[in-house]
Design a protein around this nucleic acid. Structure first.
Lengths: 192, 192
DNA sequence: CCGCATCCTCATGGATACTG
DNA sequence: CAGTATCCATGAGGATGCGG
């Protein structure tokens, strides 16, 4: 049970000591979208061994990155600090997403996180993503799952605007989602 | 030799597929300070197995993140894109650096990277860090090692300014370096 | 000496079965 | 549902060897 550490007095090494293990940041990703119970986290991490998930959750809790609340596991304020880390990784990882292989898993929420990482945070308005699996939305950097308040508010004509904004930083427009995913933007602000 | 992948069509998972293995981001950290030969990289990664370093370097090269140049291994432009990722991790990892344990390794360059991550990039002027091991400097986000052009240019009185700036984002002022480390700032701009 | 490759041992991860 | 227990596969750590 002794923790594996790099033994370096360096911020990067310290960060990796605590969230550098396999699956750990993917668990954080799941919790960035709100509190989640064990089984739901597991559903978002196809292939993880159940004991590993239990181990990781214990370690994250011991480190003060997550806690157990009424709605399941949730990020602490300190753990929320990882959002910027995740967003930078998502941005950089976009390079490997020009094509989707058939065997690769896809969840609309992951796409939402990518959009949240790419769309300028201050941009007002809401972005909705609809797939066969459900609806996710982003509102000023917050990712919400399964809530489509006003389906009629979607403005098809502005889809390109969203993709265009994102494409300014990464070729998100060439993302190969599923074909049945519809990205729609409602009331996007005009600012930079 | 088959690559271990999460099998997820997600930017974060993709990023971790390529730089999520143990030691990989620490290798990138070493190369963020300029081209480095094998033995020098190894010297910056106490405890790494030699075959592991060779493996990682091969993978990074195959992924187009590093290349071999005349001066050793160096980051490609794509690999340089990891700088922001590293900086975010360094910022977050600063939380674990309030105290230095005696057995923890310390290199001035790591401290320089932390400062580069914390000091606003646009700030003009140069920051120098002197320890018993040598001198590192940061100039507009670039980390340079072992060059002290003008030792007399150091203004002791501005040390607090540097630490103050950094402390605005993280408690860098409480960093526990070695006691013999001197942080000095020359000609720091005034703007935010 | 530098830049690895090989070999061996042991810790970690993965898959599946099982339990309070 | 939320894990634990178990067993096997894989990867990391450490010593040593070896060719350029």
């Amino acid at each position: 049970m002794t923790r594996k550490t790099y033994g370096q007095y360096c911020g990067l090494a310290k960060a990796l000591d605590h969230v550098g293990d396999r699956w750990t940041l993917l668990i954080v990703r799941e919790l960035l979208m709100g509190p989640r119970r064990y089984s739901r986290i597991r559903a978002g991490l196809p292939g993880i061994a159940t004991n590993l998930l239990a181990d990781r959750l214990r370690e994250l809790e011991a480190d003060g990155i997550i806690r157990q609340g009424d709605a399941g596991y949730e990020l602490t304020e300190f753990g929320r600090g990882l959002e910027k880390v995740v967003h930078e990784l998502v941005r950089w990882g976009g390079h490997w997403m020009r094509h989707r292989e058939p065997e690769e898993e896809f969840r609309p929420e992951w796409f939402a996180i990518a959009l949240a990482a790419l769309v300028p945070r201050r941009r007002a308005g809401k972005v909705e993503i609809r797939t066969g699996d459900g609806v996710v939305s982003i509102d000023r950097g917050r990712v919400l799952v399964g809530s489509s308040d006003d389906p009629d508010a979607i403005v098809e004509g502005e889809t390109q605007l969203v993709l265009g904004v994102a494409a300014g930083e990464l070729p998100l427009a060439s993302l190969d989602v599923t074909g049945d995913a519809t990205v729609a933007a409602g009331a996007l602000g005009a600012g930079p």
